[in-house]
């Protein structure tokens, strides 16, 4: 096929300057730095919040078991969030590029599905733990208030939790889903391209 030769010739005419390997290594270092920074900031911030809550326990010496369980649940919520956050980034970095493209797409699909599952479960768990924790934590302090004030306090908190539960949570989950679903669809389409006409 004459055009075959022409195409190969045309193809090979495309060349570009070779970037210095130093730039390549700079990029590796910069990638590691950015990635670590993100991970460290999120962890430090949330751990500080957890320490702050523990200090409240220490200094104010709550008497009720509900307050203590509330604090434990809030800390668990923070840990659940951190666990999910710390898992999601390395999950994708762990993917191996050395397999055949068909296998690689399968791997990406299964990683994305895992991520989707983890996010769904963890977001629900986070909201449940946080809301219940807060509810329990408040009991002791509201009991010390007069009834109307207590009702206002619970009313506001219940409203805030409801807002989170019915608006923020579905929105967060929907956003996460849309993003991952879009990618899963694209990877599925790519996988289909391999099986078509075979």
């Amino acid at each position: 096929m004459n055009s075959n030769l022409d195409l190969k010739e045309l193809w090979a005419k495309q060349e570009t300057g070779i970037p210095d390997t130093k730039d390549l290594f700079k990029r590796v270092a910069s990638f590691k730095r950015t990635y670590l920074k993100q991970l460290v900031y999120a962890n430090i911030l949330l751990l500080l919040v957890a320490i702050f809550i523990v200090l409240i326990w220490y200094y104010f010496q709550p008497e009720y078991i509900t307050t203590k369980s509330g604090i434990v649940l809030i800390i668990l919520a923070i840990l659940a969030y951190l666990f999910s956050y710390n898992q999601s980034i390395p999950l994708l970095l762990k993917s191996s590029y050395e397999m055949s493209s068909a296998d690689y797409l399968q791997q990406l699909l299964s990683l994305k599905r895992k991520q989707q599952f983890l996010q769904g479960i963890m977001t629900n768990l986070y909201f449940i733990l946080l809301s219940t924790g807060l509810f329990l934590y408040m009991i002791e302090y509201t009991m010390r208030m007069k009834l109307p004030m207590g009702m206002v306090c619970y009313g506001i908190t219940a409203g805030w939790i409801a807002f989170n539960w019915f608006y923020i949570k579905p929105k967060t989950i929907r956003k996460q889903r849309e993003k991952i679903d879009g990618l899963i669809n694209k990877f599925t389409l790519l996988t289909k391209q391999f099986s078509e006409n075979s």
Partner: peptide, 10 residues
């Protein structure tokens, strides 16, 4: 990832 290394313009 927002990384811009100084790759010399070729």
């Amino acid at each position: 990832l927002g990384i811009q290394t100084e790759i010399p313009e070729i």
